Amino acid sequence: MERDVASMSRFAFLILAVVNAVLNLLGYQTISEQFVNDVVAILSGVYFIWAGWKNNYLSKKGIKQKEVLKKHKLH
């Protein structure tokens, strides 16, 4: 069975987030809010740029897709 790296990394971050939340509930400051806000801002920016690239006809593949849509009068 092949391991999916993306799934494993998401699961690892989930575990870290849960441990951090539990420790914060118990009164231990593990990760500062400023650091969390900075990471969220950076990841959000990267995700928005990626989504904009994937959901527009900017790449070679996207340009070909747009041509097919025009050919079949779907765009």
Rank of each mutant, 00 (worst) to 15 (best):
V46G: 01
V39T: 13
L14S: 09
K61Y: 06
L43W: 05
A6H: 02
V19Q: 01
K71D: 10
K60V: 14
L26K: 12
K61W: 13
S32R: 03
I63G: 00
S32V: 01
A21R: 12
W50F: 08
R3P: 02
I49L: 13
K60E: 15
K70V: 11
E2P: 12
V5T: 08
G27C: 06
L23V: 06
N37R: 10
N55P: 02
L58N: 09
K64E: 15
L69N: 08
Q29G: 11
F13I: 03
N20C: 14
V36K: 00
Q29F: 07
H75D: 10
R10W: 12
N24E: 09
V5E: 13
Q29W: 04
K64A: 15
Q65T: 06
Y28I: 15
Y47W: 03
A21Y: 13
V19L: 13
E67S: 11
N56A: 14
G45P: 04
A17M: 12
A6E: 03
Q29P: 05
E67N: 05
L43E: 08
L25S: 10
V36R: 01
K61E: 12
V36Q: 06
Q34E: 14
A12Q: 09
V40F: 02
V39Y: 09
V68A: 03
L26Q: 06
Q34N: 12
K54D: 14
L69H: 03
L43R: 04
I31K: 02
M1P: 12
Y57R: 07
Q34S: 15
S44E: 07
K66W: 07
L16Y: 06
H72E: 12
A12H: 03
S7W: 00
V18H: 04
S32L: 02
H72N: 14
E33D: 11
S9E: 11
L23S: 07
W53D: 09
H72Q: 13
N20R: 02
A12E: 06
F48P: 00
R10P: 08
I42V: 09
A12M: 04
G52F: 12
S7Q: 02
V5L: 13
L25P: 00
L16Q: 00
A17G: 12
A12L: 10
I49T: 02
G52R: 03
F13R: 03
I49N: 06
S9T: 08
G45K: 00
N56M: 09
N37L: 12
T30E: 13
R3F: 13
N55D: 11
N56G: 14
L43T: 12
R10E: 15
T30P: 03
S32E: 09
M1N: 08
N56E: 08
V68W: 00
N24R: 06
W53Q: 07
R3G: 02
V68E: 09
L69R: 08
